[in-house]
Design a protein around this nucleic acid. Structure first.
Lengths: 288, 288
DNA sequence: GTCAATATGAAATATTAATTCCAATCTATA
DNA sequence: TATAGATTGGAATTAATATTTCATATTGAC
């Protein structure tokens, strides 16, 4: 005591890369069984993340107590805390942007200037794009495109935060000469407008939590008329999903309480252009 | 075989996609708390993979027993076996991510359906975000924020392709309780609306080549009334630039003839939120 | 080859987490 | 509105898992 304890400098590796480096560094000086489990850990990190001490020890051909000794030698206070590092690694792989976002948020909060706000929104947008790129289901996309391509008129339905997306879709459809109807009558004639839709038409409905009641109601009533619906929403439990023939789940990252809209926009643009494309293909085929 | 026991049909989902489909299928018939945990599970699959029954239940706002009932309703014999499915998903995702990406790229290249269109828009959006992140001038941004923060009313001016951005800004300003006016009268009263603006107000004008003549005209006339203008446009030669106190040049990448809009959106959101922030700061200072 | 230090195996124990059970509360129905 | 059935919350119980302990084996120095 008093003279600077031996364990004082034993900095416990908190991330996988540091841990890996530490292990490789000490490799030569490790006793046989410890070395065995060390090699196993670096070769099968996923097993360490999910297994139990007993199951891992068995796979590696050692006793559970050896596994714990290994963890302790590295400075952890037991197997459980060593395992955290391996689990963290898996999580981070999936969402490496989350930390960056958190950092930016912190910076923006303690007065990092307004630039931090801008960076935050850019990061949120990038994250969202990455997520949707991974999550989008090809088959659903094709199905949605097919459904929309054969519609006589495409109705576009969205309020509030989703409205900009709807107005963009309407603009792009117009450019592509695809008949469409943005449901947004200031005069409160939405119900009448919707009344004209038939099963030969189609709907793109967009709504995110908290779902605008008007969007839900309108979607319901148009679905009851037998008009097929493509929904863009943020959870499979969204009230929109139950009415839709096809739906897309878009998880937008948020910054400062405002969610990004980039992933939704990218999806909307892709849908629109793909529908245009499909119609051209179909037209070509029909003409010969 | 033959007699078909009662539990025989209870096919337990062994992979995540099947599980997901099963949950969505039964969604409507699930009791409240079970539905709550079901929604949480699909929205936060990683948490299910890593958490303990107690921690997950707490995050989802239910009792651990509810979590177990949920697992049992799906045919698992307990939480632990349900969790296996979520863990398996993570392992697979990680191990095959690179392969999947490569396959995707290959497919996109030899015209593998409409997915390529989607990927193209995601790529365009990412590029645009990267570009603006590098190009944005901090000083200009601060200047624009300052100018807008002290405005009595913020007028938002945009047509056609830029209109979705304008509607988003108007929505966000409204949420932040900042007085604003979206100039978009269907009745053709834009000129009159603009007539009310004074030098104590401010304008956000957005227009990209080919510049909508109406936007240019309206921006000119409002500038002549001495109202300060922040412009978002795509070139320093843009007709908007000459009227603006501050302007931002946003270069959006395009795909298939359609330009991305993500960078503009990110800038718009950042401007809006930063203005809200600045007003709060100013308010705090004024009050003490 | 002997001794001390270190490492290992295996079982005992302590801890933590999953599961079950029961009373209380809702919900739909007559 | 009374009642049966379903659902839920929370504590009690049971199962599992990590950790400790101690006896035994191995290694290296003299």
């Amino acid at each position: 005591m008093g003279v600077g304890g031996a364990t004082m400098d034993e900095r416990v590796p908190r991330d996988f890369e540091t841990l890996r480096a530490t292990i490789l560094d000490r490799r030569a000086s490790l006793p046989k069984r410890i070395a065995q489990i060390a090699a196993y850990a670096l070769d099968n990190p996923d097993d360490i993340a999910f297994g139990t001490a007993a199951s891992i020890a068995a796979s590696a051909g050692v006793q559970p107590s050896t596994l714990i000794r290994f963890a302790q030698q590295l400075g952890f206070d037991g197997f459980t805390s060593l395992q955290q590092v391996f689990r963290e690694r898996l999580r981070e792989r999936n969402s490496s942007y989350d930390e960056r976002l958190a950092a930016l948020r912190a910076k923006a909060e303690d007065g990092g200037g307004h630039r931090a706000i801008f960076d935050g929104f850019v990061a949120a947008a990038s994250t969202s794009l990455g997520d949707i790129s991974r999550a989008l289901n090809d088959a659903h996309f094709e199905e949605a495109v097919a459904l929309l391509a054969k519609a006589e008129t495409i109705y576009v339905l969205a309020k509030r935060r989703s409205y900009p997306v709807a107005s963009y879709i309407a603009y792009a459809l117009g450019k592509l000469k695809i008949r469409n109807q943005l449901v947004e009558s200031a005069a409160g004639l939405n119900a009448e407008m919707i009344g004209f839709a038939t099963p030969r038409d189609a709907v793109i409905a967009i709504s995110f939590s908290p779902y605008a009641p008007a969007t839900i109601d309108e979607t319901r009533s148009i679905a009851e008329q037998g008009v097929p619906i493509v929904a863009i929403t943020d959870s499979s439990f969204s009230p929109l999903a139950q009415f839709a023939k096809v739906w897309f789940e878009v998880a937008e990252a948020d910054f400062g309480g405002f969610r990004s809209i980039s992933a939704t926009m990218a999806l909307a643009m892709a849908l629109t252009v793909a529908v245009g494309e499909k119609r051209r293909e179909a037209g070509r085929r029909r003409r010969g």
